[in-house]
Structure formats: structure tokens, C-alpha cells
Amino acid sequence: MRRRHMHAFPSPCFRAGAREGFRAFLPLSVGLIPWALVTGMSMVGIGMTPLQAMGMNVIVFAGTAQLGTLPLIAAGAPLWLIVATTLALNLRFVIFSAAIAQGFHGHGAGTRWLCGHLLTDGVFAACMVKMLETEDKDWRLGYYLAPSLWSWLLWQVFALVGVLAAGSIPKDWSLEFMATIALLVLLLPMAKLRPMLAAAGAGGATAVLLNGLPLKLGLFAAIFVGIGAGLAVDHRQGKGRAA
């Protein structure tokens, strides 16, 4: 592909990249649908109005973080703890962001902020390798933005379907428990690795033991204990390989 300087946007290279990115991501994107539905239903399940639920869905745009904060919001946890927990659930994105950053070389700050805001696990997993090995910056941007915007659209549309469906489900069906199931399903594949299992086990146990602490401080402590346990087991495994 010849590198062209074009002021028209989107350029042909951008469009070629967008087509290829969309094609690569389309089959994966189907997996977003149940999550969006469940997130929509769970937000209404803890008592949000449809407007609040869709507001959260647009502003936060992160399934794990949204689902993870719902039990805290429902329990009336302090604001700082809700934000700290959101941050803990999102720290993996710092790693993803560092890994894919080179792919945005040559683009301005505004484009980078938009792309950063749209970074999701699925798009990262599907797009990172090609993003880093392609020369043309417009092609790369198209390849990233098309699946990202498609994810955004699917997320909003199917969350809205979930929000509207939740209204017609009886109140005593404990819909808020869908958030717990969703978090559990996210946790299970992580726990297949030993250090992750240690982090989850230590984090879960600490949260139960310190449950009596005011302001849900136990949750905050549990995240640190869990990270420490994960690092400790990771370190021991590393030593085992070296020996």
C-alpha cells in the first residue's frame, strides 16, 4: 500500500484498515451481547432508572467496572471506595495501553484520547498484533477504530435492551444477583493460573474476614492483600523455574 498524504478523512487507507479490522473482530463481538444484556438488567436490578442506567453505560463503558461497582452502589459504600474499586478493576488496561501504544504513533492527542476511551479487552486481544506490525498510520487507526466503535454500539444497544427488559421482570426475582454471577464468570478463567488463584483466594478470604470493618474498608484491604499474594506466588514460581 502506497503511503499517501491526504487531507480527506477517512482516507482510502483508513477505510481499508477499517474493513479488515471489522472483519477480524465481527465473530468475536457476538460475545459482547450477553454481557451488555446482563449489565443492563443488573443496573435496573439494583434500582437505577433507565436514564441513570444508560447514563452509566455511556459514561463508564466498561462491563467489568460497571458490574463490579453495582453491589457497592447498592450497599451505599463510600464514594472513594467505589472509585478505588473501579480503578482496581481497570488497572489491567494500563498494561494493555502500554502494549498497544506504539500503534498510535503519528496521531494527535485528541485521536489518542478517543482511542484510549474505546480500549476494551476484546479489541485489544483481536487487534494488537496487526496494529504493531503495520506501517501506515491511517490503516492502523481504521483497523482499531472500526471494531472499537462497533463494540461501543453493540454495548449501548444491547444494554438498552436489557434495561427495557428488566422493567417487565417481577421485583422479587433478585435480578441484582445477575451482577454477582457475571463477576464470578469473569473470575473463573483467571483463577486457572496459580498466582491469579492465590490473588483471588487471598482477596476473597480477606474481604470475608474484614467484612465487619466500617466503610467497607475490608474490600480495599482485600485488593492489596490479593495483589500481594499473587506477586508472592508469581515470585516463588519464577524462582522454581530458575533453579
Binding site: 489491567r92 504513533h105 490473588a199 474481604a207 490479593g226
Partner: peptide
């Protein structure tokens, strides 16, 4: 951009935050 790199200890620590936080929410619940 590529100007700043993350120390490897920090990178490893960040990997365990989601599992710890998810378990800390789900297990008590």
C-alpha cells in the same frame, strides 16, 4: 506514547488487581 515504560514489578502487580478485586466483591456476597 512510547515515551514512558512501566517497571516490570508494577506490570506484574497490576495483573493481579482484577482477580483480587473480583474475588473481594463476589466471595463476601
Amino acid at each position: 506514547g512510547g515515551r514512558v515504560a512501566l517497571p516490570s514489578l508494577v506490570q506484574r502487580a497490576l495483573r493481579y488487581a482484577p482477580a483480587a478485586a473480583l474475588a473481594a466483591i463476589v466471595v463476601p456476597d
